[in-house]
Nucleic acid binder design. Structure first.
Length: 465
RNA sequence: GGCGCCGUAGCCAAGGGGUAAGGCAGGGGACUGCAAAUCCCCGAUCCCCGGUUCGAGUCCGGGCGGCGCCUCCA
C-alpha cells in the first residue's frame, strides 16, 4: 500500500506521486497578520505539520513554504485605528506567530515570505499577465480577466456562467466583467504604496501566493494547502494566475484543505465574540492537548471544539505519558515478551496503513493506544530489558511522527519538588508503621495541592494532577 | 439560488459491501491497608424511508437534521 491523498481538485483519493521524488514542494497559506492568531489558525498549522512529518517519516524530503500576508486592508484599517504603523503592527503578530511555532512544536517552514518583501516579483508577475492578455489596467488598478482562463472554476466546482458575482457586493463598473478580480490596487491616500508601471499601489490578495510559490518553489509544486474557506476565491484565483503566467498545469498537483474548527457548534469569529486565541489556550493548556484534539478527528472534517473535547484529550494525553514509565521487570523472553513484540509490530503496521489513507490520524491514534495497552500489560507481567525498551521506543517513534512531545509536566513549580519528595518519604515511613490515618492525610492534602500519589510494589510514585 | 461536507454508543471518533477500532465518561471484577495507576469484563436496531445485492453504517434514490463556502477569513 502506498500513500493516498485526497485531492480537492479531482475530489478523489489519489496515489501520492510528487514531481521529483524524494522532494516534495509544499506551500501552505498562512495568516493575514492583522490580529492575534486563534486556535483555528493553530489547527491548520498542526494539520500541515503532521502531513509534513508523515511525509518525512515515509522518506520524502519536504520543502515547506508558508506566507504572511502583511499588506492588506484589515491591517491598514487596524493600524489606523490604533494609530500605529501598519508594518509594525504586522511585525508584532509575525513575532507572536513564531512564538507559537515553538510552543506548538511546529516544524518551522523553510521559507516565510511576506508580501512587503516581494513586491518586485509580484509586479513582474502582474506585468507578465498583462503581456499575455490575462490582465488589464484601469485607472491604476490591474484586474485579472477571468473569462480568458478556460479552467476557471475547476477547483471549486463552479461554472463561470452561473456565478452571481456582485450578488452581495456592489460591482465595480470599471471592470470588464464582474468576475474579474484585482491583481494590483491603486494607492489611496494614507495607505502604504509601492511604485509600479501603473502608478503607486499595492498588490491584491491572491497574487502574492502565486508569486511566492513561483519564486520560492518554481513553476509547479506538489502540495498546496490551506483551509477549506480558501478554496474559493483565493485558491481558484491562484490557479488562474499561476497557470496563465507559466503556461504549465497543474500549478499544484495536490490541493489539500483542512476543515474549519467550530467552537461549540458555531464558527469562531470576532463578531460572535467566541474567539479563542492561541495565547489564551496555551495559558491554560499544554500544546500537546491542542494537538491531540486536532489528531482525534480527520483533518478534512469540521473540528468540533469545546471544553469536553479538550478535557478528553488532556486525559488521553496522560494515558500516553504513563505508558512511557519504565519497567522494573527483567523478563526478556517468554510468552509475555512474544506477545509484546507481536503487538508492537502490528501497531506500527496499523499506524502506517491508517496514515497512508489520507493521513487518517484518528485511525492511527487507535493503533497508538492499542500499543499503550500492550506496553502496560507487558510491564505488569514483568517484561523488561530490550524488548520493553523497544516497545517504548516504537511508541515514541509513532507519537513523534504525529508531533506529540509527551514531555513531562511543566517545571514551573520545580522549587516544590524537594518538599514533595520529603513528604513522600515521611509518608512511606508512616506506612511502614501502619499509621494509615496520618499517611492518608498527607496523601489527601497533597492531592488538594495537585500532587497525586501512587503506591506501587516498587515504592510510591508522585505526579502533578 | 449555486457548490460542497456531515449525521456511527452518554460525549469525541475511525471504518466506507461480509457482519462495528480507539479515547473520555459510566458499571462490575483483579491488584491495594484504603486509594491511585494498571489489567480483565460489560455497552451501538451505524438519522429515517425505499432500492440494488446471497449479504448495506458501507452502493443508489428520496426525505429529515446540522454545517461550510459563494464577501475578508486557516
Amino acid at each position: 500500500m502506498a500513500l493516498q491523498v485526497y485531492n480537492t481538485l479531482t475530489r478523489r483519493l489519489e496515489p501520492f506521486q510528487p514531481l521529483a521524488p524524494p522532494w516534495v514542494k509544499m506551500y501552505v497559506c498562512g495568516p493575514t497578520v492583522y490580529d492575534r492568531a486563534h486556535i483555528g489558525h493553530a489547527m491548520s498549522a498542526i494539520v500541515f505539520d503532521v502531513i509534513r512529518r508523515y511525509l518525512q517519516y515515509r522518506g520524502y524530503r519536504v520543502v515547506h513554504v508558508m506566507n504572511f500576508t502583511d499588506v492588506d486592508d484589515k491591517i491598514i484599517q487596524r493600524a489606523h485605528a490604533l494609530g500605529v504603523n501598519p508594518f509594525d503592527l504586522a511585525q508584532q503578530y509575525i513575532d507572536e506567530w513564531f512564538d507559537h511555532v515553538r510552543a506548538l512544536n511546529l516544524l518551522p517552514a523553510h521559507y516565510y515570505p511576506r508580501v512587503s518583501l516581494i513586491i518586485p516579483q509580484i509586479i513582474d508577475m502582474v506585468q507578465g499577465l498583462i503581456e499575455k492578455g490575462y490582465a488589464y489596467e484601469v485607472d491604476g488598478d490591474v484586474y485579472y480577466r477571468v473569462r480568458r482562463f478556460p479552467h476557471y472554476g475547476e477547483l471549486s466546482g463552479r461554472d463561470v456562467d452561473e456565478m452571481r458575482a456582485g450578488a452581495r457586493i456592489a460591482v465595480d463598473e470599471r471592470k470588464e466583467d464582474p468576475l474579474d478580480f484585482a491583481l494590483w490596487k491603486a494607492a489611496k491616500p494614507g495607505e502604504p504604496a509601492w511604485e509600479s508601471p501603473w502608478g503607486p499601489g499595492r498588490p491584491g490578495w491572491h497574487i502574492e501566493c502565486s508569486a511566492m510559490s513561483y519564486y520560492f518553489l518554481g513553476e509547479q509544486i506538489d502540495i498546496h494547502g490551506g483551509g477549506t474557506d480558501l478554496i474559493f476565491p483565493h485558491h481558484e484565483n491562484e490557479i488562474a494566475q499561476s497557470e496563465a503566467f507559466t503556461g504549465k498545469r497543474p500549478f499544484a498537483r495536490y490541493w489539500i484543505h483542512n476543515g474549519m474548527l467550530q467552537l461549540r457548534g458555531e464558527k469562531m469569529s470576532k463578531s460572535l465574540g467566541n474567539l479563542i486565541t492561541v495565547a489564551d489556550f496555551l495559558a491554560e493548556h499544554e500544546a500537546d492537548v491542542l494537538r491531540l484534539v486536532v489528531l482525534s478527528s480527520h483533518y478534512r472534517k469540521p473540528l468540533g471544539f469545546d471544553d469536553k473535547v479538550v478535557e478528553d484529550a488532556r486525559r488521553g494525553l496522560e494515558r500516553l505519558r504513563r505508558a512511557l514509565r519504565p519497567s522494573r521487570g527483567t523478563l526478556t523472553e517468554g510468552e509475555a515478551v512474544d506477545a509484546l513484540v507481536e503487538q508492537v509490530a502490528q501497531a506500527r503496521e496499523g499506524f502506517v496503513a491508517a496514515m497512508d489513507d489520507d493521513f487518517n490520524t484518528a485511525g492511527a491514534l487507535g493503533h497508538v493506544f492499542t500499543l499503550v495497552r500492550a506496553i502496560n500489560t507487558a510491564r505488569d507481567a514483568g517484561v523488561g530489558g530490550e524488548p520493553f525498551a523497544q516497545a517504548v521506543a516504537t511508541l515514541l517513534e509513532l507519537t513523534h511522527t504525529l508531533g506529540l512531545e509527551l514531555h513531562a509536566e511543566s517545571t514551573v513549580v520545580a522549587d516544590a519538588v524537594p518538599f514533595i519528595e520529603l513528604l513522600v518519604e515521611v509518608r512511606s515511613a508512616l506506612r511502614r508503621e501502619k499509621q494509615w490515618a496520618l499517611a492518608d492525610t498527607i496523601r489527601d492534602r497533597l492531592a488538594q495541592m495537585g500532587v497525586v500519589l501512587e503506591d506501587t510494589p516498587q515504592g510510591t510514585l508522585w505526579r502533578w494532577a
